[in-house]
Amino acid sequence: MRTSPLTRSDGLPTASTGTRPPYLPPLRIPVRRIGARTFDFSRQVAVMAVVNRTPDSFYDRGRTFQLDAAVSASFAAVAEGADWVDIGGAPFAPGAPIPVDEEAERVVPVIAELRAGSDVVISVDTFHAQVARDAIRAGATVVNDTTGLSDAALLAIVADSEATLVITHSLAAPRTQYPRPHYEDVAVDVARFLSERVDRAMAAGVPEERIIVDPGHDLNKNTLQSLELTRRLSEIADLGFPTLAAVSNKDFIGETLQADRAARLEGSIAAAVVSIMNGARIIRMHNVAASVAAARMTEAILGLWTPQGLRHNMGEANE
């Protein structure tokens, strides 16, 4: 467990006289055992890498579609410091549905090979109960459903396993258009939706210590709505569950900066840092090494992590 010199006996950061302490999410169950790893989300941020085994993935446009490329990318993410690897076999974007068997054939071999060689947290990005079941059997420890629990059978699969469930806000049926999304108040509406879905999951037998929430940046939201969700992310974190921010290379960053997908790294890091400052405790990112460094630096600024190798102006001579 990472510790900080700036902590009280109850584990929370201290605040210097005259300063306002940072926002810390009121986590109901901060310590989570996910697979072989334990996270104390009151003190740390997990970096989730993204590996999509699709020919038309949002970011890499099929670079990791072949099995060997997907496996190599997964192990490379671990080597760069990822705590977590999210493996998907179907894009979120509107389009023809991917047959369930085909989706499972894409993700299960990658999960199996990664699990055989690493204790990293592995999530399967799917909304299908069958794919979730097969992925869990292969070694996945998280089901990352980006469709707001569109498949009712998925909850039973998760409840009957030891897997954690990510519940994401999105309104459209999977792979369908949802033009001109409207919210009375985007943060309030998203928080209400997630709270209702959490209740549904718990009623189906998924315990609260295995639930994570994601406000779904860009998912059935325009750029202005995603920006507002980012600056008001604390209203999602106030639900008390670890909050995942999937901001990497999203269109709200591209439209804000007029940047294509190859030029969104800086914007992605900025969005991730603001999300952490506002309570996110998992960030889903494509550029792993840069994102890990950003997460560690933000933890240190928040007083959650001790800087490594303190030397500068700490002794009799300046260094």
Rank of each mutant, 00 (worst) to 15 (best):
P55T: 08
D125G: 08
S161V: 10
V71T: 00
I122H: 01
V110E: 08
A132G: 14
R63V: 03
A90I: 08
D134I: 00
D68E: 15
V120K: 01
V158Y: 05
A132M: 02
S118G: 06
A69S: 15
E162T: 11
D68G: 11
S57D: 10
D83Q: 01
I111M: 08
V85M: 10
D101M: 07
R53G: 03
P109D: 09
T141Q: 07
P97V: 06
D145H: 06
T126H: 10
A156Q: 13
R61W: 05
V108L: 08
M48A: 02
P94V: 12
G95D: 09
S72E: 12
D60K: 13
L149G: 01
G139R: 13
S118L: 01
L154K: 04
P97R: 04
D101A: 14
T164F: 01
D83E: 10
V78C: 11
E103P: 00
T64V: 08
S72V: 03
R63M: 07
A140G: 07
V50K: 03
F58P: 00
I122F: 06
R43P: 02
V47F: 09
F92D: 12
S57T: 11
D68W: 07
G117Y: 01
N144S: 13
F75W: 03
D151T: 06
I87M: 13
H128L: 04
T147I: 00
V51W: 04
V108D: 04
T146A: 11
A96V: 13
V50N: 02
N52G: 09
R61M: 06
D151N: 10
S74R: 04
Q44P: 00
R133H: 13
P91S: 15
T141P: 02
